[in-house]
C-alpha cells in the first residue's frame, strides 16, 4: 500500500515536473536517469528527516558540548542537502557519464567485465539480504583504508581537513567533504566495484539504517554502545575520538566508518568509553573552520595546490 502510493506520487511528480522539462530541452534520453535521481532525492529527503528526528533529541538529551555556533552547523546542513538530495551526485553524473561510458566500453573491449560478489560466491544469489551484508562488510573495509589514506597522504589531508575542521560537530557533519574528496571517494569505490561489482540496492530500509548509523556517529551526544556494542558498530563516542584535535594528520585513531573491527584488527582502535575530546583540526585555518560552503571548498583547493607545490 505504502509502496504503491509512493510509486504513484513519484510517477505523478516526474510526469508533471521533470519529464516536461526534459522534453522541452531535448534531453529525453536522460529520462530514466532523472527518474532514478528523483527517487534518490526523495529517499534522501526522507533519510534526512529520519536522521533529524532520531539524532536531534539525542543531542538535546545528553550533549557533549553546548550548541554555540549556529553558523557552522548551517554550513554542514548545506553539505547534507547537496549530498543527500543528490544535487552534487547528479552534477557529477551528468559531467562524467560520457567518460564512464568510454571507460566501461574500453574495459569490455579489453575483456574486463566486473564480476559481482554473488558470482564469486554463488550461495549469495539466493540470499539477497546476505549479499548486501557481504557488500557492506567489504566496502566498509575499503572505506577504512580510504580513510587512513585521507589522513596518511598530506595532499589528501589537505582536502579531508575540511571534514575535521568542524569544532561544533553534530550529526549534520557527516557529509562535510570537499567535492574533490567526494570524487576521489567515487573513484575508490569504482576501483572496488571492478573487483566485486556494485552492491544491490533493493533494501532501502537497510540503506537508511546504515546512513542513520553514520550520521549518529557524528552526533553531539554523550553516547557509547557499551563494552560489546562499541566493538560492533561505530558509536558517537568512538567517532568523536577520531575527530579529537590530536587526530589531525597521520596520528589518528578510530578510522572505521561503520564497523570498528577494522581498527581493532589493525591496531588503531581506542575503546576508552569515557573520553569525549573537543573536535577540530589544529592546522585547518579559519576559512575551513568558519567559512561558508564555497569558501571552504576554495580553501581546500588552495591548500591542495600549496601542498603539491611544496613537494615539487
Amino acid at each position: 500500500m505504502i509502496e504503491d502510493t509512493y510509486a504513484a506520487f513519484t510517477g505523478w511528480l516526474f510526469e508533471h515536473t521533470l519529464q516536461p522539462v526534459l522534453y522541452a530541452t531535448g534531453m529525453m534520453d536522460w529520462a530514466e536517469d532523472l527518474f532514478a535521481w528523483l527517487d534518490f532525492a526523495l529517499r534522501g529527503l526522507f533519510g534526512i528527516l529520519v536522521v533529524y528526528f532520531v539524532c536531534r533529541p539525542l543531542e538535546a538529551w545528553r550533549p557533549v558540548e553546548p550548541r554555540q555556533d549556529g553558523a557552522a552547523i548551517r554550513t554542514d546542513m548545506v553539505y547534507t542537502f547537496l549530498s543527500r538530495l543528490g544535487v552534487l551526485p547528479l552534477v557529477a553524473f551528468v559531467l562524467l557519464a560520457s567518460l564512464q561510458s568510454r571507460w566501461e566500453g574500453w574495459l569490455t573491449e579489453v575483456g574486463v567485465m566486473p564480476p559481482t560478489l554473488e558470482e564469486l560466491f554463488p550461495p549469495l544469489r539466493d540470499h539477497p539480504l546476505l549479499a548486501l551484508v557481504a557488500y557492506v562488510i567489504v566496502l566498509d573495509f575499503g572505506e577504512y583504508w580510504r580513510h587512513r589514506a585521507q589522513h596518511g597522504f598530506r595532499w589528501w589531508w589537505a582536502l579531508h581537513a575540511i571534514h575535521h575542521a568542524q569544532r561544533q560537530m553534530t550529526f549534520w557533519t557527516d557529509d562535510r567533504n570537499h567535492v574533490l574528496d567526494d570524487v576521489l571517494a567515487a573513484l575508490w569505490f569504482g576501483g572496488l566495484a571492478l573487483l566485486i561489482g556494485v552492491p544491490p540496492g533493493q533494501f532501502p530500509l537497510i540503506l537508511l539504517l546504515l546512513r542513520l548509523a553514520e550520521s549518529l556517529s557524528h552526533a553531539n551526544v554523550r553516547l557509547s554502545y557499551g563494552r560489546v556494542g562499541e566493538r560492533l558498530l561505530v558509536s558517537p563516542r568512538f567517532h568523536r575520538l577520531h575527530h579529537g584535535e590530536l587526530s589531525a594528520g597521520a596520528s589518528g585513531k578510530n578510522y572505521a566508518v561503520l564497523l570498528p573491527i577494522w581498527d581493532w584488527i589493525f591496531g588503531t582502535a581506542d575503546f576508552r568509553r569515557d573520553h569525549y575530546p573537543p573536535t577540530g583540526a589544529a592546522d585547518a585555518g579559519e576559512a575551513m573552520e568558519r567559512g561558508g560552503w564555497l569558501r571552504q571548498q576554495w580553501a581546500g583547493f588552495q591548500r591542495l595546490a600549496l601542498t603539491i607545490a611544496r613537494r615539487a
Binding site: 509512493y6 551526485p89 557529477a92 553524473f93 557488500y135 567526494d182 540496492g201
Partner: peptide, 20 residues
C-alpha cells in the same frame, strides 16, 4: 517467494550514499 521491496535506484557512477 522472496519479496523485493522498492529500490532507491543509485545514480550510476556515484558512491551509494549509505556505503560511503
Amino acid at each position: 517467494v522472496v519479496e523485493a521491496p522498492a529500490t532507491p535506484v543509485m545514480v550510476p557512477g556515484v558512491v551509494p550514499a549509505a556505503l560511503r
